[in-house]
Write a protein that binds this DNA or RNA. Structure first.
Lengths: 121, 121
DNA sequence: GCCGTCTTCAACCAACTGGTTGACAACAGC
DNA sequence: GCTGTTGTCAACCAGTTGGTTGAAGACGGC
């Protein structure tokens, strides 16, 4: 299913709790317990969320005794912005081009497909 | 669940088929049938995908007789880029600041802060 | 008015998700 | 060596998702 990395990243960020964790990790690294604090869920649930984020490459976990500090890996964001920007630009350019075409179109070229109707000759 | 708009947008883009549709819609508007052509799924499945994209505000559908041309709404992309860029910048700045601190830190200053920040021990 | 085309609606199904509880592994400290 | 803390693994459950088939709605053409 969502095997490709882009799908994993988008899916990971589709959850508000996970986005909030990202927001907090942008400020400082944190342990699983610390991350779990503000939410009304078990530590296990948070651990699962972190796994999703880790699989998406958005965070990494190191070892510090029995603690597992979580660290934000912001580079992956570029993957997304690249994808997004690509199509945003493409769409924008298309609109621009379409505008030009419409503006330069003489009256006798109707935008109505001249298929078998009262033929516009 | 994914009630907020940001979640809907991310979730919508977490599917490769839907991302592919976006890519094609960036080139030109298309009908449901046209969109369904390349994929090995039923038209109904594609219609469902389009509903997800529409709910996320990524596409809009107009009426043209019994056809429903699908149109890409690229503005929503900004919502995402804004979110992403915010935390990417924040994380980057944090790393920069941390770098400064480490660089300017004399040996006799213990790196143990009163609050638990990501201290590299 | 009927037919064919394009599209959606409804019901159903398998798989995934986000949550739970319970057990257990790893480690610091006493 | 026990004990407490931190975190993960496993099994389970309800709800969502992405797909299917079948029926029906909306419309142009004849």
């Amino acid at each position: 299913m969502a095997a490709d990395s882009l799908s994993r990243v988008f899916a990971a960020l589709a959850d508000p709790t996970r986005r909030d964790m990202i927001a907090r990790l942008a400020v400082a690294d944190a342990t699983v317990n610390e991350l779990a604090q503000p939410y009304d869920v078990t530590v296990q649930a948070v651990s699962k969320h972190l796994r999703v984020l880790e699989d998406a490459g958005l965070v990494s976990r190191t070892r510090d005794a029995q603690r597992r500090p979580v660290h934000l890996e912001a580079e992956v964001f570029e993957l997304m912005t690249k994808w997004i920007e690509r199509y945003r630009r493409q769409a924008e350019e298309r609109y621009r081009r379409l505008d030009d075409v419409l503006r330069s179109m003489p009256d006798d070229v109707a935008p109505t497909p001249p298929i078998k109707t009262g033929e516009p000759s």
